Simulated assay, not measured.
Amino acid sequence: MSLFWRIFALNAVVLGAATALLLWAPVTVSVPILLPEAAILLGGLAVMLIANAALLRIGLAPLERLSRLMSTVDLLRPGQRLPPPARGGIAEPVHAFNSMLDRLEAERALSNARALSARETERRRVSAELHDEVGQSLTAVLLGVKRVADQAPEPLRGELRLVQETVRDSLDEVRRLARRLRPGVLEDLGLVAALTSLATDVATHTGVKVARDLRAGLPPLGPEAELVVYRIAQEGLTNVARHAEATRVELALLSEGSGVVLRIDDDGHGLGDAPEGAGIRGMRERALLVGAALDIAPGPDGGTRVLLTVPTTREGDRP
């Protein structure tokens, strides 16, 4: 029975019972109405309203359960579907909602793929400009300062040496930013070498000790999947350095079943009750692009664990 007919039937039962009582009860209504008659009529109205409210509560309970289930669905965790009800007359709304989730997940995956592709293209452009234009300009300034410092008298030479060191530090920072924007080592040497370089860079510039367990001989991943793994590792280590107040983090890449697993464990203060920020949601969006599962939860020894499982059997990930 559909929800409409269930509610109609409940109201028909209440109104039918009230009509039957009026027809067969010995109660009559005088003009003007007497106090006992008014009390009986008001009491009957109250009973009818209470019965109607109780029956409607029973009839609409499946919709309330459906509403609670809908509020827990998150498009960044695909595959969540409402189970078809065994009873309650809401099979059609549940089916429509599940169909809507199918469409939304497909559209979101497509739009995320386009957005992230555009973002990576912009990263490569900015990285090239930093390396080719800003980097070359700073190199020219560095050489000019060195030439002037070599010819300057001693009191001025020391100050020029300080300027030279400042320019050299700026040049190193520009190169580091260019590498973060476009991991050339990932394209040239592979995922393990890129993660090794990333861990070394984070440890050098943040002071956080990074322990590595990067296995060789892993199942092959496509370029898109490797980039997703690298970006999620980059974001995870950046979050540890900025927010976790950790002293040690372990970065692991290993094979598990038919997939590749990236694991990041830190000894920081954990996530607590803070809502997921843009960084974590961006990690989830990247994981969706290659059908990977991303789990962020408290670590076994405190802190936070980031666990990314990337399947290796997807056609889109094959080179």
Rank of each mutant, 00 (worst) to 15 (best):
P93R: 07
P93L: 06
H95N: 10
H95K: 15
H95I: 13
H95W: 05
A96R: 15
F97A: 11
S99N: 11
S99T: 14
M100N: 08
D102K: 04
L104M: 10
E105K: 02
E105H: 08
E105Y: 03
A106N: 09
E107W: 04
R108Y: 14
R108S: 13
R108I: 12
A109Q: 06
L110V: 04
S111Y: 09
N112S: 15
A113D: 08
A113M: 05
R114C: 12
A115S: 13
S117F: 06
S117W: 08
A118G: 14
T121N: 10
E122D: 12
E122V: 12
R123E: 11
R123G: 01
R123P: 03
R125Y: 00
R125E: 09
A128P: 00
E129V: 11
H131Y: 09
H131G: 14
D132I: 05
D132W: 00
D132V: 05
D132C: 02
D132L: 06
E133W: 07
V134C: 09
V134R: 05
Q136Y: 03
S137Y: 11
S137D: 11
L138F: 12
L138G: 01
T139R: 07
V141R: 00
L142S: 10
L142K: 03
L142D: 14
L142E: 13
V145E: 05
K146R: 14
R147V: 15
V148K: 00
A149F: 08
Q151H: 11
A152D: 04
P153Q: 14
E154F: 03
E154P: 06
P155T: 06
P155R: 05
R157E: 06
R157L: 05
G158V: 11
L160I: 10
L160Y: 06
R161G: 15
E165L: 13
V167Q: 00
V167G: 04
V167P: 00
R168W: 12
R168M: 05
S170M: 14
S170Y: 08
V174Q: 04
R175W: 03
R175Q: 09
L177K: 00
A178N: 02
R179N: 11
R179Y: 06
R180H: 11
R180N: 11
L181H: 07
L181T: 09
G184Y: 03
V185Y: 02
D188E: 15
G190A: 03
L191Q: 06
V192N: 10
V192Y: 00
A194T: 07
L195G: 04
T196K: 13
S197M: 06
L198G: 05
L198R: 07
L198P: 02
A199L: 05
T200G: 13
V202K: 08
A203I: 03
T204P: 00
H205N: 05
H205G: 01
G207P: 01
G207W: 06
V208N: 01
V208I: 14
K209V: 14
V210C: 02
A211M: 09
A211K: 09
R212E: 07
D213R: 13
L214F: 00
R215N: 15
R215E: 14
A216T: 11
L221W: 07
L221D: 08
